[in-house]
């Protein structure tokens, strides 16, 4: 099975994140950037499927030059090769344009299965898998917490607020995964060394036949008008339990009219 895993580099969600004052895009320059956490689960799932059914795993990233760091890290977990779509004109791309570019790149890769994270920690838009399926005219099984592959037949448990749905499709398909699906492996020392030699193909917009004015700020379908830091919350009352902490807590809830 020919599997492509989508990997996005994002600013570390454990550190302070901000928009840049100039062009109001996510500040990536000063941030410590990491693989979008959910995408590590996507990589793991792809590797498990390859181990069980054979095939090849390709990492696909659209992002600035610095994203190569995350690509190497992804490769150190075990995928065979990577494709990095990078072009100065992409800066400021909205989700609609990003999906156009990723779909064009996927068009060159002939994937049976495309696996991505359910959402990214910077945008949290959760739309990419469906946008790609729409553009490619293939099935989307999203929000999977379990995936079974039987030949060309895919069955997923899709997590919902009420419980789950069992959903099925045949390949080619896009599957997005939650962090409940598996436990991503740590790269081994051997894996890290091997990753340095794995092929990473760099593609520009011209290579994909996408015009620069369809992407970036030129082609953006939405724009940030303004942004501001939200005033941080301040600490209120803190008491130490000396035997009646529970009662004190309820007293507070009562004054706030919750009980």
């Amino acid at each position: 099975m020919n599997i492509v895993v989508l990997v996005k580099q994002v600013p570390d969600s454990g550190a302070e994140r901000t928009l840049s004052a100039g062009d109001k895009t996510v500040e990536r320059g000063s941030a410590s950037n990491v693989i979008n956490e959910m995408d590590e689960y996507a990589i793991e799932e792809a590797l498990k499927i390859k181990e069980a059914h054979g095939g090849e795993v390709t990492v696909l990233t659209m992002g600035p030059a610095g994203a190569t760091e995350s690509i190497r890290k992804a490769l150190s977990m075990g995928p065979d090769k990577a494709v990095h779509v990078t072009d100065d004109a992409l800066h400021g791309s909205c989700a609609v344009a990003t999906s156009k570019v990723l779909a064009a790149a996927l068009g060159t890769l002939n994937a049976d299965l495309i696996i991505c994270g359910a959402e990214s920690t910077d945008g949290r838009v959760q739309v990419m898998p469906h946008m790609l399926a729409e553009r490619l005219g293939i099935a989307a099984l999203t929000g999977a917490r379990k995936l079974t592959v039987d030949g060309a037949q895919l069955t997923a448990e899709r997590q919902t607020d009420e419980g789950y749905e069992v959903v099925t499709a045949a390949t080619p398909a896009v599957v997005s995964v939650w962090d409940t699906i598996n436990e991503p492996r740590y790269p081994s020392f051997k894996g890290i060394m091997a990753a340095k030699k794995k092929p990473v193909q760099s593609l520009s917009l011209a290579d994909l036949g996408v015009s620069p004015d369809e992407v970036g700020f030129a082609g953006a379908t939405s724009a940030v008008v303004e942004f501001a830091k939200r005033p941080p919350r301040s600490a209120g009352t803190k008491v130490t339990d000396e035997g009646n902490g529970g009662a004190q807590l309820v007293e507070f809830l009562a004054t706030e009219k919750f009980v």
Binding site: V96, Q126, V127, E134, A140
Partner: peptide, 18 residues
């Protein structure tokens, strides 16, 4: 969000989430 994503692509239209 998923319906919105598909809709935005179908209509080549911007999308604001959350």
């Amino acid at each position: 969000k998923e319906i919105a994503g598909r809709l935005a692509v179908k209509l080549d239209n911007g999308l604001l989430t959350d």
